[in-house]
Amino acid sequence: MNQHPHGWGRPRDDVYGAYDSSYLNSTQPVTHTQRPIVTGTSVLGVKFQDGVIIAADNIASYGSLARYDNVERLLQVGTHTVVGAGGDMSDMQYLHLLLDNLLIKEQYPADDHHLHAPQVHSYISRVLYQRRNKFDPLWNSILTAGADPNTSEPFLSYVDLRGTTFSAPALATGFGAHLAVPILRRHVPDEAAVKDLTREDAEKLVDECMKVLWYRDARSGVTYSWSVITKEGVETGSKKIENQSWKFAEMIKGYGAQNI
């Protein structure tokens, strides 16, 4: 122990060497908020003739470890909107808090006006864009799905951690953007096709895409939550992927112990 009054409690330099204080004056900015830790994978959304369907599985991964298998990634916001989030789960939970507070503040005027999907989407996209400008983004990609309570006009929009937004009749985040969107687009290539897609077909389509993702996305899960939003409101539920066939796995080459 260093007994000099200026060095009380510190290890002696002549015994332990000088204290390495280089880490104290780092010139680098803080980066620990700038990567996702516990993550959720894809969210799917498809418009159909009188509403929208949105689905996301219940896995939250820690790297490649399927750390949690009971995470709800779909959040109902008000009467006719559901927000689904992929990416960092703690950022998603923070966003849920923001949306919850937004809804409560929206009630203060008691004027019978309510937030619907376009407003919720707009709010989320502003929050995300503001955070990317602070170089401290909320690490999510988000789908906002809803239906107009009067006209039943479906709404579906995407926003990501940079605040980029776009809309399409069928959308997916994460791995789903690569694996599910091509399948979805075969059925709803444009807004006109939405008018011909029934709810049953839309549900089947989403089930099919969730199955493909379960087969090919190593961060996906076997159970998933779904919501259907029509002008009547939101219906929600949970599903497990049925009728699995892993036959195709035999064809996959290039991994593991193979003699060919």
Partner: peptide
């Protein structure tokens, strides 16, 4: 009850 809240995940 429907107008005021979202059920899933809300406080």
């Amino acid at each position: 009850t429907a107008a005021v809240t979202g059920s899933r995940g809300m406080i």
